[in-house]
């Protein structure tokens, strides 16, 4: 029994000295950080705004339509590409400050993904028309000339002494 208690102690101290396991097992569980239910009262709204480091005026939860985001704030979508590269960010690699609430679609609007605030030189329909016009046009040309083959005009090959048998493969 004493041995058992000792080995339990050993594993506990090993856990204590292993930073990765200590952080993952003993701290920062998702259950402690998951969003609460959609805020119904004014007090709940203020508490949620404080939790997400927002002012109560700017806090706006996602509509309670069953999409399951609870009280997570509906933040303005600003892509990484549209954020100021010269601002002294706490995390320059994410263009993000410490404890700044993250957009619910952060995975989409990261710097290496889609830029929702892109300032395009021309309207979007122009680019779609350009792309589809090229692809459909190339396909039309391909399918037309796949059916209508064209060749250079040729005459039959001309050899000297045509019609004369020089050699046969028959046995004599």
């Amino acid at each position: 029994m004493n041995n058992l208690a000792k080995s339990a102690n050993v594993s506990k101290s090993w856990l204590k000295t292993n930073p990765i396991l200590f952080a993952a097992i003993r701290n920062h569980w998702n259950k402690d950080y998951k969003p609460a239910a959609y805020p119904r009262t004014e007090n709940e709204r203020i508490a949620a705004a404080e939790k997400y480091q927002l002012q109560p005026e700017e806090y706006q939860p996602y509509p309670d339509d069953g999409s399951g985001r609870g009280d997570y704030p509906n933040l303005p979508a600003i892509s990484g590409d549209s954020k100021d590269p010269f601002y002294p960010w706490d995390h320059p690699e994410l263009k993000r400050n410490f404890n700044e609430p993250m957009h619910a679609d952060f995975g989409l609007i990261r710097e290496d993904r889609y830029d929702v605030n892109a300032k395009l030189k021309r309207p979007l329909w122009f680019y779609w028309a350009q792309h589809l016009g090229t692809m459909i046009g190339l396909y039309c040309i391909y399918s037309l000339f796949e059916n209508v083959k064209m060749f250079h005009a040729l005459v039959p090959k001309q050899f000297p002494n045509q019609g004369k048998t020089h050699y046969t493969f028959e046995r004599e």
Partner: peptide, 9 residues
């Protein structure tokens, strides 16, 4: 904490 809240959400 904000990163953890995002992942937990």
């Amino acid at each position: 904490p904000a990163l953890q809240r995002y992942q937990a959400m």
